[in-house]
Design a protein around this nucleic acid. Structure first.
Lengths: 234, 234
DNA sequence: TCAAAAGTGTTTGGGCTACACCCATGG
DNA sequence: CCATGGGTGTAGCCCAAACACTTTTGA
């Protein structure tokens, strides 16, 4: 027996892929390779396969484009307006991804004509992808205000200065350097390395890496790197 | 032209319907009326119709059961394991609903053999509905810690005592009465009525109602009725 | 007049902000 | 020896938690 008479629809996953180049937030987009809207800028997406969960689909699609596995992915609310895809009804479950932009560049796939755009200079996208990007950004801001997920955007070793810039860019705000440093270090999530970055200053700034164990244990914990939340989010 | 060769699947919306009877959290469940798993306890659900958005589907399904419109609904992450529904592949987009239990009782529909269960005594549900309930509860706790959504569960006029109990039950914790009152009133979201509830005390407690305008303007604002968040959520 | 709940006041301490200051080093 | 960014110290303020206290009224 089946659910006879009930309509079936396509289900897709879309990836909103964020990166940080040390200076600015970026978004990885592709040139759509099939109709409708062929050759226009689009999020990387794919249809859910018969024996695949949503999360697995998102991982697959992301890997297809970037070659990366084990990337941070988080589902955001589904988009299901009846005519969002003019070809055929398709419900999309979007995921935002946080990738270390350097790792990606190492294994770039040319198949999709992918390009990193400054988040602030995102081109006009197909369907409702603009709205998806906007929602993903809102969610990222929200989540990152409470949880330490932004480390996913940085290389394995990084300076406090990089982390500081990352937060300032995301929230389009300035945060006191001293207070920021103290808050971050007080979490105990970071381990100071012996090596210093000497490129950006005479004195040199220590590199840090994540204490992976503490990081995973505190993933759901509430941190507070951001002052005056209500002014900064929304 | 169509997306030929791509599989189509059923998409359903599920409603996790929360209520509060003044003393405890409750969950509205139905006896499933069709195969598979007929006659077992289930969330209220329905398949998405051809010209219906996800949100509209959730509203429709909720109205079908309760007769209520304009209820607070919030989408939570979709469930898409390939075999979550043994009959045919179905991806479910769950919504949690906050209803004033009194309004509902006025227009109960007997068609679904619906019953309110204590949240703490939820029976075993079909498919992955147990997981949905769990996720909805987690989300509700999270959201309510920052945003003033719990008023949706109360009648139009209510006492601070009721509100206080509501928060204590949701977080399975006690909160200092004085501090709680001060925090709530300091938001300016409540208007004190002249009438008092004389049933629960000799002195009588003032009824309050929402200042609807301020409420809607502050819906996304960050409040903080809950002390020591990290101990209480998670 | 007493019990019981409503509602108000007051002290205290921790933590956050703002800002000043020292440190290290290459030129 | 100075400019530059890295990093630390600290005073003050605000706010929340804890808890004591007053108010009201039915029995």
């Amino acid at each position: 027996m089946k659910y006879s008479g009930q309509t079936r629809v396509h289900v897709a996953v879309d990836c909103i892929i964020f990166g940080f180049d040390g200076e600015n937030f970026k978004l990885l987009l592709i040139k759509r390779g099939f109709e409708p809207e062929m050759h226009r800028w689009s999020l990387m997406e794919g249809f859910i396969q018969p024996d695949e969960s949503l999360g697995a689909g998102a991982q697959r699609v992301l890997k297809q484009l970037t070659g990366l596995e084990g990337v941070y992915l988080e589902q955001i609310p589904a988009f299901g307006e009846p005519n969002r895809d003019p070809m055929e009804r398709t419900i999309s479950v979007p995921y935002f991804a946080l990738v270390d932009i350097q790792k990606y560049e190492a294994q770039l796939s040319f198949d999709y004509q992918a390009e990193w755009f400054l988040l602030s200079e995102t081109p006009n996208l197909i369907f409702d992808h603009n709205a998806m990007v906007k929602m993903a950004k809102t969610r990222l801001r929200y989540k990152a205000a409470f949880h330490p997920i932004l480390f996913e955007l940085l290389p394995d070793k990084f300076t406090l200065q990089q982390l500081h810039t990352l937060y300032e860019k995301l929230y389009e705000n300035t945060f006191d350097k001293g207070n920021f440093t103290r808050k971050v270090l007080s979490t105990g999530l970071l381990v100071r390395l012996k090596e210093k970055d000497k490129e950006h200053s005479r004195k040199g700034a220590f590199y840090f890496k994540l204490d992976r164990e503490k990081y995973h244990n505190n993933f759901e914990a509430f941190l507070n790197f951001i002052p005056s939340l209500d002014k900064v989010i929304g």
